[in-house]
């Protein structure tokens, strides 16, 4: 839960700080990239026991 709160705040802060870029016509790729990253962070935050990529690939 702490990861969810801390990372949500971090994502929100950085997107707010970069709001100048969003007015430059760069909004769609920027928000798509960040949203997918945020989704992955959510998955990581709520599945702490997830197997790692190294384990999956090497096995």
């Amino acid at each position: 839960m702490s990861m969810f709160i801390v990372m949500s705040l971090l994502y929100a802060f950085f997107v707010w700080r970069d709001r100048g870029f969003l007015r430059d016509g760069f909004a769609l790729p920027y928000l798509t990239f960040v949203s997918f990253a945020f989704l992955l962070t959510l998955v990581l935050a709520f599945n702490p026991q997830m197997p790692s990529l190294a384990e999956l690939i090497i096995r």
């Binding site: 990239f33 960040v34 945020f38």
Partner: peptide, 9 residues
């Protein structure tokens, strides 16, 4: 920022 967050994940 987007690249940094992907590297983080």
């Amino acid at each position: 920022v987007p690249v940094g967050f992907w590297v983080f994940n």
